[in-house]
């Protein structure tokens, strides 16, 4: 655990919120084991052992035999920082509960299936840097108009316009707040580009959102 993490108590991530990714997987999601496409947001947690900060090294993961894994990938999302207790709010009201915005990095193992919770791939120590800071909500006129980019060693690898999300920031806050009461400082990573970016040991990864900042982390293991 990183002592100075920006996350308080909970980091909820939304998977499969890229319309293009959902469209590309539509045939797959109509087959076993899924049987039909998701009707609700597909959510997962990055637990507290994963939380880290801007500038920190991300550990290169080990497999179950203790050897370095062959591949890791990264996604980046706008992080919506909850400002006060958020319980059963409407989408119309939802943005009034936001204190600010930040960037969430999600380093993980490549994901072959969405059927089961991915503990082995997602819960790696230090794999969720959050930062570089929290930008006050009033500085961002429309969170759904932002664009998230990922560069690796200075080369642009991914661009995701949040206008292409299946569900908007406000819709997600509303839906999640009807599952769980959210508290101040809890963060929702609202959506990742469907194609995660492959990374190698020692790579420098920069996730940027204009007006929110750049989150910079380096892979370990080099």
């Amino acid at each position: 655990m990183t002592a100075n993490t920006l996350v308080n108590s909970k980091l909820v991530c939304v998977a499969l919120n890229d319309k293009a990714q959902l469209a590309a997987l539509d045939a797959t999601f109509n087959e076993a084991p899924y049987k039909k496409p998701p009707t609700q947001p597909v959510l997962y947690y990055k637990p507290r052992n994963t939380w880290s900060v801007d500038g920190a090294e991300v550990e290169w993961a080990k497999d179950f035999d203790g050897n370095d894994v062959a591949e890791m990938v990264v996604g980046a999302s706008l992080g919506v920082v909850i400002g006060k207790e958020t319980c059963r709010v409407s989408a119309e009201d939802a943005l009034n509960y936001v204190a600010g915005y930040t960037i969430v990095g999600d380093f993980s193992l490549p994901e072959a299936s969405y059927y089961r919770p991915d503990i082995k791939g997602k819960c790696l120590d230090t794999s969720a840097p959050v930062g570089p800071e929290i930008v006050a909500a009033d500085k961002i006129a429309n969170p759904d108009a932002l664009t998230v980019t990922i560069s690796v060693n200075g080369e642009l690898k991914s661009t995701f316009e949040l206008g292409n999300m299946e569900r908007s920031v406000a819709e997600l806050i509303s839906i999640i707040s009807r599952i769980m009461t959210l508290q101040a400082g809890e963060i929702i990573a609202v959506g990742f580009a469907g194609d995660r970016v492959a990374v190698a040991k020692g790579d420098k990864v920069e996730a940027s959102i204009e007006g929110v900042g750049t989150l910079t982390n380096t892979l370990g293991g080099a």
């Binding site: 909820v12 998977a15 499969l16 084991p33 899924y34 049987k35 039909k36 998701p38 009707t39 609700q40 597909v42 959510l43 997962y44 947690y45 969405y114 059927y115 089961r116 919770p117 991915d118 599952i179 769980m180």
Partner: peptide, 12 residues
């Protein structure tokens, strides 16, 4: 639902 089953809507 068959995504990260059992999903958060069931268990959180």
């Amino acid at each position: 639902e068959n995504y990260y089953r059992p999903n958060l809507r069931v268990k959180s």
